[in-house]
Design a protein around this nucleic acid. Structure first.
Lengths: 350, 350
DNA sequence: ACTTCGTTTGGGATCGATCCCAACGGGCTT
DNA sequence: AAGCCCGTTGGGATCGATCCCAAACGAAGT
């Protein structure tokens, strides 16, 4: 009794199954092609026929089957947002949420649907690869790419329209969008210099990611630009996690007990560093000034609240989506990378 | 060597398009039906034929078109996760991220894909409705439902398998999963009572949502259970936002300058309340003890750190997904709601 | 030897849309 | 009146899979 409907001769009142384009055509007294033309907004339809079709559609509550359409047009009207979660950052960082929001917003006016694909391990990567090869999406958004990520290359080979948030390296051939990581970091460090700090350490992100190395570069360039030597032992590698920030901070304090400022490449790491500084009896900002990156919620709620470099993450989501539209429509016409500006939000920690 | 094979005979060289089941059949020297049987793991295939087909598939790098399959099976092998964003909570709350992670995890072993649909306004709701009527997904996960939400009713009418995270009311007919909101809140309040607090206020969530009213009920029940009168003027409505928490706290302080504890129905609101308490010169926890709900990142980073009721959000995501599997497979067999336990995490604020 | 049974097999029809192309009718030209 | 073009129209083929059903085959039973 799972399928309760009984089939009558005609599609009797109750409407057992969903109406098809054929039902509509019969009702409107026209051919299937005419209905199809109305659906696709073709101008080669008389007003008379058009209104007949439209009323039939309304009466039958007809919605065209996108599956059938996809089969013949070989478009799917959907795109994939791929998020690698090897570092399980989705939980700790609102970054991905903001990207998702931006993407979804850009999608709002269109007919496109969003497929969200989290990739945790090799098995899921294989499955994704098959999924992409099967042509189940018209385009792909790739977030948080690593230097040696195999996915962008695969997508290039497949010829599937792709846009990255971030980049593998400075020579990224695929269209992409990223924040001005170098500039933002440099501004943060210059801010610390302006506050009279002289021994400025940095906790970096993963250095096999462009975000990681670029923010480190910003730190270095700002110091060099100020005529200060960029002492490489003031660099401690982190991994964007709180625990990583804590450990990096501990290492830095051991090597440089007299450091008076720290620039962390993410707020979450800064929060970890903050805890470690407190544990070591350092006052923030009196003994050590601290600046983070992202301007996430945590930045507002630490004590003291955290000076941080704000990036427009939602805007990144919007922009990659719009670039993807272009890629899909005209196939990689203008592939200039887009760089979004950052801004320094000064709070109590510096 | 990306597309190595050129086909002799029929589809002239180039190998331009993806291979179809027909190509595979020809190569393996069998009929289309046999290939289809192999693909679907039917036992009615000789070992000989099977291996022939499998090697042909491997050589041609064949991936079946899920679109064509959907057309005939009328399954889409994808489900939708619908998130209403009218309150734009996705940004401020890691709640949705955690649900997404749980859902994605439960999906990992299956062939199902996840469609993420954020609904911001009426226009997007209409579009969603059309989308669902078009049968573009096999099932729907609905998160954060309001009492008078039109969506669950629509889905019931459509007969589309649906599972809710949360519920419209205590009499929710649709299968659903939620945290023990009443129990968790009650535990929080009992904890405050045990700490010797006597004038315990509460900042609620939206009261047109079950999470909101249930957490309020927990507060009330704990007080009544302790023989204390539940003074309704100690209730201040919030909206799960930081600003809402701040305003609610201000109102409470005006009405009850001598209150000595506050239970907020979310960490984010608690953070807002905390800021307002500090502004008003109250010490936490000395003058006023504070407890939140969710145990999100903010709870660990406020100063003082926040005592909070932890709920297993990721588990909610996993569970609704598994329930949806059952709904899709056997059509609403066991529709008992699942209630997940909460636990109180005590920190410095109480 | 002939039926009967069960295992394998493959061709034709089907799902519901789009696209190609031939046909229709009427207003204009010649 | 014949010819032609143009705006409309609809039937048939197509996309790439699954499903129904009949057929081929060898083995087993009478």
């Amino acid at each position: 009794m799972v399928t309760p409907r009984q089939e009558r001769g005609q599609p009797a009142a109750g409407g057992g199954r969903r109406p098809t384009i054929k039902t509509v055509a019969a009702r409107a007294g026209v051919g299937r092609t005419t209905v199809s033309r109305v659906l696709n907004g073709s101008p080669l339809v008389s007003d008379e026929a058009r209104t007949a079709v439209l009323t039939a559609i309304a009466e039958l509550n007809f919605v065209p089957s996108s599956v059938a359409r996809s089969l013949v047009t070989s478009r799917t009207d959907s795109i994939a947002l791929v998020i690698p979660e090897s570092e399980s950052r989705l939980g700790s960082e609102p970054y991905f949420s903001a990207v998702i929001r931006g993407v979804s917003e850009a999608l709002a006016g269109t007919q496109l649907q969003l497929l969200l694909i989290l990739v945790r391990d090799q098995r899921e990567l294989d499955r994704l690869q098959e999924f992409l090869t099967a042509g189940r999406v018209d385009g792909v958004l790739l977030v948080s790419v690593h230097r040696d990520d195999p996915l962008p290359g695969l997508l290039e080979e497949l010829g599937l329209p792709t846009v990255l948030a971030g980049r593998r390296s400075a020579e990224e051939p695929l269209p992409h969008v990223h924040s001005d990581n170098v500039g933002g970091s440099a501004e943060a460090v210059r801010h610390l210099l302006a506050r009279g700090r002289s021994e400025i350490a940095t906790i970096t992100g993963p250095l096999d990611m462009d975000v990681g190395s670029s923010r480190l570069r910003g730190w270095r360039e700002a110091l060099v630009g100020a005529g200060a030597p960029a002492d490489e032992s003031l660099v401690a590698p982190g991994d964007f996690t709180e625990e990583g920030g804590r450990l990096a901070m501990r290492a830095l304090l051991e090597r440089h007990p007299r450091l008076d400022a720290v620039f962390a490449a993410s707020d979450v790491m800064a929060a970890g560093a903050l805890a470690e500084l407190r544990r070591a009896g350092r006052q923030v900002p009196d003994d050590v000034a601290l600046v983070g990156f992202d301007d996430s919620i945590v930045a507002r709620h630490t004590e003291p609240s955290l000076t941080s470099v704000r990036q427009q993450v939602e805007e990144i989501g919007r922009t990659i989506t719009e670039l993807l539209f272009q890629e899909i429509a005209c196939g990689g016409s203008a592939r200039f990378p887009v760089v979004l500006p950052t801004s320094l939000i000064v709070r109590a920690s510096s």
